[in-house]
Amino acid sequence: MTQTLLQIDSSARMQGSTTRALTTRIAERLGGALTRRDLSSALPQIDENWVNANFTPEADRTPAQRAALALSDQLVAEIKAADVLIIGVPVYNFGIPTALKAWIDQIARAGVTFRYTEAGPEGLLNGKRAILAVASGGTKVGSDIDFATGYMRHILGFIGITDVTLVSADEQMIDAERAAQSAEDAIARLAA
């Protein structure tokens, strides 16, 4: 059975982006049916209309509310259809790019990708795998100043995706060769 991959690129750079190169290499390594989502042209920020539509029961939504959620519904459908998410995570100023945060805001939806229970929130997108292709200039992945990877692991777990692997090319401005080799080694270890 062929696995389905969702490649999400969030780097503002179209040329010379380490994370774009890594997500492509990972997709090639894993193989399978591939859907690509490029966030560089920026998704809309959620606004009051979106929030009101999201918290209106689906059966009661107006046509305008359905339209407000149409992109979000499409993004969630892409995740639901995928077995593996390959997410490019460039570290910008110690965190994730705003384009990636906008995607998260569109897909983290109560009653759709997670729900609240008496025991606390429960993710609804179980059984999926995520691979984070992380690149940074000077931030060491996993350090006290890396606010990107911990956040991504948390938000993915929040929606039910707990099988998360990091492929990192961190601290490129300190040791570019080591960063590139570290990422290549991690890709080589990935099982299809």
Score class of each variant (00 low, 15 high):
187 I>S: 10
156 L>W: 00
188 A>I: 10
20 R>N: 03
72 S>Q: 05
105 D>E: 11
58 E>S: 11
162 T>E: 13
159 I>N: 04
181 Q>A: 14
47 D>P: 01
158 F>D: 05
167 V>D: 13
90 P>D: 10
97 P>W: 09
137 G>V: 08
110 A>I: 13
185 D>N: 14
162 T>G: 14
58 E>H: 10
20 R>E: 05
168 S>T: 13
102 A>E: 05
60 D>F: 12
95 G>W: 00
179 A>H: 03
187 I>V: 15
90 P>N: 10
117 T>S: 15
124 L>M: 13
177 E>G: 12
130 A>W: 00
2 T>L: 08
7 Q>W: 06
82 A>F: 03
137 G>K: 02
60 D>N: 11
90 P>Y: 09
5 L>D: 07
112 V>H: 06
120 G>M: 11
161 I>D: 02
122 E>S: 04
39 L>Y: 08
59 A>C: 04
24 T>R: 14
63 P>V: 12
72 S>W: 04
151 Y>N: 01
186 A>F: 07
112 V>S: 08
97 P>C: 02
139 T>D: 06
91 V>I: 15
110 A>F: 05
17 S>T: 12
184 E>D: 15
163 D>V: 11
168 S>G: 01
118 E>H: 09
31 G>H: 04
2 T>Y: 00
166 L>Y: 00
116 Y>L: 09
17 S>V: 13
48 E>R: 12
73 D>W: 02
95 G>F: 05
8 I>Y: 03
170 D>L: 05
34 L>D: 00
70 A>G: 00
98 T>W: 13
62 T>Q: 07
175 D>M: 04
166 L>T: 00
112 V>Q: 08
80 K>Y: 00
55 F>N: 12
106 Q>T: 08
114 F>V: 03
57 P>M: 00
180 A>R: 15
103 W>R: 06
26 I>G: 05
83 D>F: 10
108 A>W: 01
89 V>C: 14
53 A>E: 07
185 D>S: 12
59 A>N: 13
161 I>F: 02
164 V>I: 14
146 D>Y: 02
18 T>E: 06
56 T>S: 11
176 A>R: 15
69 L>F: 09
118 E>T: 13
104 I>P: 07
106 Q>F: 02
92 Y>G: 03
56 T>E: 10
100 L>S: 01
